[in-house]
């Protein structure tokens, strides 16, 4: 008996929007307001969410939403121009008011969990996902503080918007005050306080290092580049059982779980294919995952109940997936 293709296709929502406003926020930082051409509500989201901007053939970039979920008619993103990047920020900076644009999402790998106390740590343009978090933490009456570092005041976006939170915000422009003093900010574990950090890789790694002694689940990071993962030996062949589809497939050493599923006609979402964006998260019902992504934190990885199939593999010889 041959397997009949079930034909179920799962995709992320793609929406055609227009750039309804362009604002220069700081040196090399531009903010785009995106709205539906007919002004209809966009899909709801929660703080920490991001969207893909489909900027051209094979040019897809993720940017955090930094507006308020209270406004269903517009999304805002703020983008730092980085000439040495892979081209996304230059394409964004070329967009003018009225430009049509296709977006995908929103999705959220950096969700704000309810907590009585928060430390928000931003490096440069990493301020963006933290803005709606701050709005929500403030509304909920949480005890929060933002530590915001940047090269100089002129390079730091949203300083005017943060003025109303004076007393809860510590600005650390490097040219005036040096680097963020992470030993003071997160050097001592504070049970019950959650740490949300977004910024350049060295900042994330430094915060991660200091939070190693905090209670599990305290630290939440958003990465824009894939984390370096240490590999042990050669990749091996393993078997995946896709429970819902009723298929058993073999993942070759040079293939990914994602590609193996796609080749078999199984619908699985994918976007960055580098283990950053979280799109291809798939439920794991049995087996031990060799996690290689930058999305799940160590606790989430240890739970072994889901995996990013674009990069992660299997520690044994078999995984049973909810797919």
């Amino acid at each position: 008996m041959t397997t009949t293709s079930v034909g179920t296709v799962v995709t992320e929502l793609e929406t055609d929007v227009v750039v309804s406003a362009v604002r220069r926020l700081a040196t090399d930082v531009v903010e785009l307001t995106l709205a539906a051409p007919d002004g209809r509500p966009l899909a709801p989201w929660t703080p920490g969410a991001h969207v893909d901007l489909l900027l051209g053939d094979d040019l897809v970039r993720q940017y955090s939403l930094c507006s308020s979920p209270a406004d269903p008619t517009a999304y805002r993103v703020a983008v730092l121009r980085t000439p040495d990047s892979r081209g996304g920020s230059i394409a964004v900076h070329a967009l003018a008011e009225g430009a049509p644009l296709r977006i995908r999402g929103p999705r959220n790998n950096f969700a704000l969990l309810s907590a009585p106390r928060y430390a928000f740590v931003a490096g440069g343009i990493g301020i963006t996902p933290l803005l709606p978090m701050i709005e929500e933490a403030e509304a909920a009456g949480a005890d929060w503080h933002l530590f915001y570092g940047g090269r100089s005041r002129a390079s730091m976006a949203y300083l005017a918007e943060l003025e109303k939170y004076a007393g809860c915000v510590t600005l650390v422009p490097q040219d005036e005050a040096g680097m963020l003093d992470l030993d003071t900010i997160v050097g001592t574990p504070d049970p019950g306080r959650l740490v949300y950090c977004c910024g350049p890789e060295p900042l994330l790694n430094a915060v991660e290092e200091r939070c190693a002694s905090w209670p599990h689940g305290s630290l939440h990071l958003e990465r824009f580049a894939a984390k370096e993962v240490e590999r042990e030996g050669e990749d091996e062949t393993f078997e995946i059982v896709l429970q819902r589809s009723g298929l058993t497939l073999t993942v070759a050493p040079d293939a990914t779980v994602f590609q193996t599923m796609r080749d078999a006609g199984v619908s699985v979402l994918g976007s960055c294919l580098e283990g950053i964006c979280g799109t291809c998260e798939t439920g794991v019902l049995e087996g031990e995952v060799d996690h290689r992504d930058s999305v799940l934190d160590p606790d989430e990885q240890a739970e072994m109940d889901c995996m990013m199939v674009c990069v992660s593999r299997c520690r044994g010889d078999r995984l049973v997936l909810d797919a």
């Binding site: 034909g7 995709t11 929502l13 899909a43 709801p44 989201w45 969410a49 929103p106 999705r107």
Partner: peptide, 14 residues
């Protein structure tokens, strides 16, 4: 039934 097309966002499903 013809193929099922599922479209998701963070908070919605169609």
């Amino acid at each position: 039934p013809p193929p099922l097309q599922v479209t998701v966002t963070e908070t919605t499903m169609r």
